[in-house]
Nucleic acid binder design. Sequence first.
DNA 1: TATTTATTTGTACGTATGTATAATTTAATG
DNA 2: CATTAAATTATACATACGTACAAATAAATA
Lengths: 234, 234
Amino acid sequence: MRQQLRSLTLIQGSDINRKPGRPKGGKSEQTRERILDAAEQLFADRGYDGASIRDVAAAAGLQIHSISYHFGPKEQLFDAVVARRADIMTGLRGAALETARQQAGAAAIPIKQLVRDYASPFIQSASHGDVGWRNYAALMGRLANSPLGTEIIARHYDDMAREYITELQRALAGADPEDVVEGFSAMVAAMLGICAATGRPERLSGRNAQRPPEESFEALVRFHTAGFLALTIA
Amino acid sequence: MRQQLRSLTLIQGSDINRKPGRPKGGKSEQTRERILDAAEQLFADRGYDGASIRDVAAAAGLQIHSISYHFGPKEQLFDAVVARRADIMTGLRGAALETARQQAGAAAIPIKQLVRDYASPFIQSASHGDVGWRNYAALMGRLANSPLGTEIIARHYDDMAREYITELQRALAGADPEDVVEGFSAMVAAMLGICAATGRPERLSGRNAQRPPEESFEALVRFHTAGFLALTIA
DNA sequence: TATTTATTTGTACGTATGTATAATTTAATG
DNA sequence: CATTAAATTATACATACGTACAAATAAATA
């Protein structure tokens, strides 16, 4: 939205299209990242309506208007927060899918691999990534069943989701395609639940600390792979 | 909170403890229900922070202060909304569990029956109940991964959840108990996702209308039963 | 009917909200 | 250095928020 059409001549010194004045995107890219980090954390902690633009500005060490200057109205800021890491996530999933397709050749990709490849980037990022990824994971969990959330998720995640669903349906030829979509939705919900860090699993199992997400991930893969396979049995 | 200790002598005319003045809970019980209905819908549509007390009052056809008069501050109203139908839900699940225990005798309750008995009351209410149940289901979906939501869910749902988990662990003696908790969480997340009516399954499958929740329910039972059973295989 | 309490209304307070406008500072240019 | 545009600051606006207080009304009693 605020991206500039860079001039075509690449050598900066001899740039003939170069207009006078301070160029865009110099130092401000850091500022934008700082705003997104702050917004990510606050939206994750308090939700979309619970976090104010003022909170974000204060957390980023800026004045209020700097937020809307860089991102426009609140909803666009929210979208930008989701989009930033969604693009990374989609890149990882796309690469994994390409590899899997090459490995499988003409055959269908194994269910277990599809489950693993879709859930792994998210769970790995949420558990091994920096605090930003943890905040992002919590935020995505909150978004899951809200109108605004699903709208934004649709924009940034549905295309790749459909690719995985297509492969799942191919691997589960005997199953009702709608059941496969149902299974995919269940898998995503479980993945988000693991990373949301709500503390409910601990409360239900009597544990005092959160289970390492890798263990949860392995359980998820086994559980949902078996679930998918059960859909083929009429 | 605002319930009164009814006098012990049951015959109203000869009530010796009866104090003068207008008695509590007469017409106001309808008002309370009307407030809860309005709050339920608004919280479901806009979330806790997105729905204001003024909105609730207007939807119920009352002045602002009537809300806090009956329910205290906003968070207690929210809790009351969740609690009302949580009690019904817990009653149904408790009755189903008792029946299942009697049927099973000394043996473990079958996994499929536990999955069915836990998810069925919610999905049936959300699909066949009145609009209030549909709103409630959407609200519970929104709550699932938020801090305030999990706090309230813990208060009203965790006891019965632990009972079902105990039975699941008994039926899955070979499985890691923590994996079983993980599976239970996945089942709940899927159940909420089905009833949240976000439109995402339709978007992912190309359907134009929502799938009948009964079909989704049958798929959920098959999927998650198989998932649980897979946890016993080392 | 007079009295007592439950319930509802009307109004107000202090603060927080998203957004917009104008002025200022910063960083590059020729 | 003068100039141009980006980036930041400062301030303001109109509205919405949760909560509280005082008054009025309603429904039962003796």
